[in-house]
Design a protein around this nucleic acid. Structure first.
Lengths: 353, 353
DNA sequence: TTCACATATGTGAGCGTTAACATGCGATTC
DNA sequence: GAATCGCATGTTAACGCTCACATATGTGAA
């Protein structure tokens, strides 16, 4: 039924459909947009003409007059790691469900120039709202300075000193606290906090919360710097082993909280290489629940973030802002996943000084 | 310098810039598009007016008249696994470098209806070219039936019986052969091929190539079914252990080729649980080089796919098709990454029947 | 019948931009 | 000094759609 002109000419317009269906272009428009007040018979004719001509609405023309592009710009900056990517996919899915499409920009590094350009490009394409998945503190700050003219939502924790910036994220704070509490419940009194790069807000928040929670419980703890990679986790394991040698009595670290799963993987490899048993001698807990973490050796206890929920919430919030309503910005919960890499503190450990 | 009207009215148009700069709108257009024949002084005025008004080109209007949206539709279907995601990011990056933006659609499952809808939506937004990252055989077939009216490129191996479909991919064939050859070089004569789901073209191709290569070398081999997950790799390890018990002499499998790294991770975990030493008793080789595979226990020997190169090539090919030139569709190479999970066949193994 | 009134359809303008062509003007040529 | 050229700029008409309004047609009340 569907025939298309093979020439390089323009695709059929609403006018040609109108002619074909012997109605006015406006009636065609009404049919396309499902407006009421069109006789079923007329509608039928129009639909047939549309099918015959292979007509497809030109959204450029529509956007030009309505100011509505049906586009949401999503800018992910700095990484294609697990979290950002999962969030992106979830946002896209939610967007499509709500009749929007996603215009994507991925920036490798937190380059200000690139960010500004990406924002401008997206705005130039007429996006109705802008979502920035920014993991770095500095980036979020830049973002706050941007005057975009459309609703702007940042996925990632908000710096406390930046006001008037809509941010939405997984509850890093609660997640980190849950992890520490769980370790405390297992009897651990001295633990290592392996943190991510400090210019990542997620890393900051996880560390700050874990630290506070340690202090609240009166734990002995020390902080190791990591950079999200398994390699840095491996190095941390080496340091931990040394520390266990050098430390006396009840202060020997018996557990490690890694700010992400990749580093935890490195930690497991490092401990294994050093002959330290997990969880018998040291418990390890991660953060993210990346694919495969249930098959690490041993299976990794970790904090799972519900990125699908996050993505949906991001879209809902954008839509709310678009409608002029206050968005729901409460953080998305993170939940504990207990597996094999954590266990009760071994009594022998405290006596091995 | 930049002031913006706070009202909800329309943003400034080229006309207002023209009035502000006391030139015609066409001159403004010339400045915006960098056309020659504008006096530097005039250009200066226009630029100043643009800055003052906070003018930004309305791409809907531009698209309407030029038929060029600057948009490339990318549809990823069925997974957010390592490969597809990496490819997407690389495409986006290449696109931006060439002045295009990416309109994203992610489909969870290979639902035909969704695919058609996604294609139509993208076309409706005026994409100039369409890239479909399809991992499933059936999907690629559907794709071939789509008449889009714009250049269409499929990322993923092409079914041999489907003609006239531009496809581009990593050289799965060469990658799998490299892996087998490497094992052969280490002296292995009996190996297990752990394959992915057979409706994934990648899985098919990797298996077919590995199989052929095994036969070419006169190896004993058997095929285990997997589903890309670490869990299925774990199960495969169990089966392998049984097989080693039951098999006699030189036919005891001493190596396993896993069609992806996640499954290889599961295999490592399974072998470890069964007390089988890697690589002393069994060598394991993966495919993908996912993040962290260098910190598996032991570090995984694998085949690395250069997705960045693939993404760039995809864009180049799209551009070529757009220009009416024949695209370069030769596969992107895959390279061997030797790490610790593979080693020479242990002599003891063949005598342990 | 005549008016009002709803319901179905048509008409014209305008959205912001570019493409094609038209104009103005100083410099060059004969 | 007129004709010619080249450069810088202006004018007009699309592009395909939606909006606001105008016009037919049918229906019931006065």
């Amino acid at each position: 039924m569907n025939e298309r002109s093979g020439t390089g000419s323009r695709p059929p317009s609403i006018m040609e459909v109108a002619k074909q269906a012997k109605v006015s272009h406006q009636t065609v428009s009404r049919v396309i947009n499902g407006f009421p007040g069109v006789r079923p018979e007329t509608r039928e004719h129009v639909l047939k003409a549309i099918d015959k001509l292979g007509y497809r609405r030109n959204s450029a023309a529509r956007t030009l007059v309505t100011q509505r592009s049906g586009l949401i710009g999503v800018i992910t900056v700095g990484s294609f790691l697990f979290g950002p990517t999962s969030t992106l996919v979830a946002i896209e899915e939610a967007a499509r469900r709500h009749g929007y499409m996603v215009l994507l920009s991925t920036l490798r590094e937190g380059d200000d120039v690139d960010l500004t350009k990406a924002v401008n490009d997206a705005l130039g394409q007429g996006v109705e709202a802008l979502v920035i998945i920014a993991s770095r503190e500095s980036l979020v700050r830049r973002t706050a300075e941007l005057r975009t003219g459309v609703p702007l939502l940042v996925v990632g924790p908000s710096p406390v000193d930046v006001r008037d910036l809509a941010t939405l994220s997984v509850d890093q704070d609660a997640g980190a606290r849950t992890a520490i509490d769980y370790l405390v419940g297992l009897g651990h009194r001295s633990i290592v906090l392996l943190t991510g790069p400090q210019d990542w807000t997620d890393a900051q928040l996880r560390l700050a919360a874990a630290r506070e929670e340690c202090e609240r419980h009166g734990l002995a703890y020390r902080v190791y710097d990591g950079d999200w990679t398994a390699a840095s986790g491996y190095a941390a394991a080496g340091r931990l082993v040394e520390e266990r040698w050098a430390t006396a009595g009840g202060l020997v670290p018996t557990a490690l909280f890694s700010a992400n799963d990749h580093m935890a993987l490195g930690v497991l490899a490092g401990l294994n290489a050093a002959g330290v048993a997990v969880p018998a001698e040291v418990s390890v807990i991660g953060f993210d629940n990346i694919a495969g973490s249930d098959y690490f050796s041993p299976a990794l206890t970790t904090i799972e973030q519900d990125f699908t929920a996050l993505g949906h919430r991001v879209l809902l919030a954008s839509l709310a802002m678009l409608a002029g309503d206050p968005p729901d910005l409460t953080p998305v919960p993170a939940t504990l996943l207990v597996r094999d890499s954590t266990g009760p503190r071994a009594e022998s450990t405290s006596s091995s000084s």
